[in-house]
Every structure is written in C-alpha cells, then in structure tokens.
Computed example of a mutant assay.
Amino acid sequence: MTSEETPGPGGEAHEDAGVGTPAPEHHPDGLDLARAAARAAATGPGAPPARRGSSAARRRTTGRVRSRASGARPDDRDPQLLEEAIGRLVASHGWEVDLKVQGVFGRWVELVGTEVADHCTPESFDDGRLVVRTDSTAWATQLKLLAPTVVRRLNEELGHGTVTVIDVLGPHLPSWSKGRFSSRDGRGPRDTYG
C-alpha cells in the first residue's frame, strides 16, 4: 500500500479522492438499499397494476391529485354517529312520517292511557286518517267523543296536521245475513255486544 492509498470501507485500498482521481464507488446499504428495493418492487414485473383510485390515475384524468386525507375539517369519510347517519337515511327516503306513525302504534298505551288502550287499538294510518278498532260499541261511542283530544295529542307527537281524522270502528261482529232463516230487511239481534 502506498502513501496515497487509504483503506476503504470494505478493507480494499483506493486512491485518495483529493489527488484528482475518480470518486470511490458507492455501495448502497441501510436506507439507500431499502429505497432502491421499494422502487424496484413498485415498478418491477411482479408489481400489482395501478389501482383505479391511485394518484397516477387521478393525475391523468383530472390533471391534479386530490388528497386522500380528510384534513382538519369534517368530511363524509370521517366516522359518523349512528343517529346522524340514520337520520340522513330516513330524510333521503322520506320515511319521517311513517316512522313517527309506527312509533305511535308502538307507544299507543302511553299516548292515550291504559284505560282507552285496553279497549281500542290502532289498525292503520293513511293520508291523515287513523283507523281505530274498539272491542265494544260502547267504547266506539266513547272514543268518538274523545276523538278531538286524541287527535290533538297525536299531532303534538307527530307534528301539526299529521292526523286529521280518526275513524272509529266497532268490534268484529258475526254476520246474520247468512243461513236458512235470514231476512232481507232484518237488522240482526238488538244487542250492543259489550
């Protein structure tokens, strides 16, 4: 070894760089080696095809790259509260009134009281008309008298003007129009069934 040569990192001797000779050959290791391996894997023959939403594909189609991070401001991609997500779903499909009405059917006892609920049950709701079935003709009469109060209470829960009319139906009664001894103008037995 001469005085102008110094040992290199691998133990080989090379000439001093200050004498005007070519720079020593660089041997990648550590971070340089990892970067080179990542570049080779990304562009090599076994690399997966570019994803549709990749930055290169977006750059070709839109001319700019959109950020994938949501940033400091709220975004649709951020986690959402379940209540807010369901609220948007209900509003977008126009289910508000239907859900409120079904809620009234489920809370019927709470809204009209236990005494009335024991004898009257809601059957259907359509275009502001609530159909209620009673278990006796006496309760049908009673509910007809209570109808304005019930409508007011339901509209407090559902929103003004949701329920406009309550149709009160009596109990399901047997039909007396069939059989050998039926008469055309007969009104059946004179009993209120309750």
Rank of each mutant, 00 (worst) to 15 (best):
L99E: 03
V101P: 02
F105N: 02
F105I: 05
W108T: 11
L111Y: 13
V112Y: 08
V112Q: 10
G113A: 12
G113F: 12
G113R: 15
A117H: 07
D118Y: 07
H119N: 12
C120G: 05
E123K: 15
E123H: 12
L130E: 00
V131S: 15
V132K: 14
R133H: 06
T134M: 09
D135Y: 03
S136Y: 06
S136L: 11
S136K: 14
T137E: 03
A138F: 06
A138D: 01
W139M: 09
A140N: 06
L143I: 06
K144V: 00
A147I: 12
A147T: 14
P148K: 15
T149P: 00
V150L: 15
V151P: 04
V151C: 02
V151E: 06
N155I: 08
E156Y: 04
L158F: 04
H160E: 13
H160Y: 01
G161L: 07
I166Y: 00
I166N: 02
D167H: 13
D167E: 14
V168K: 12
P174D: 04
P174A: 12
S175V: 05
W176F: 08
K178D: 09
G179C: 09
R180G: 00
R180A: 00
F181R: 15
F181H: 13
S182M: 03
S183W: 01
D185C: 00
R187N: 03
R187M: 00
R187E: 01
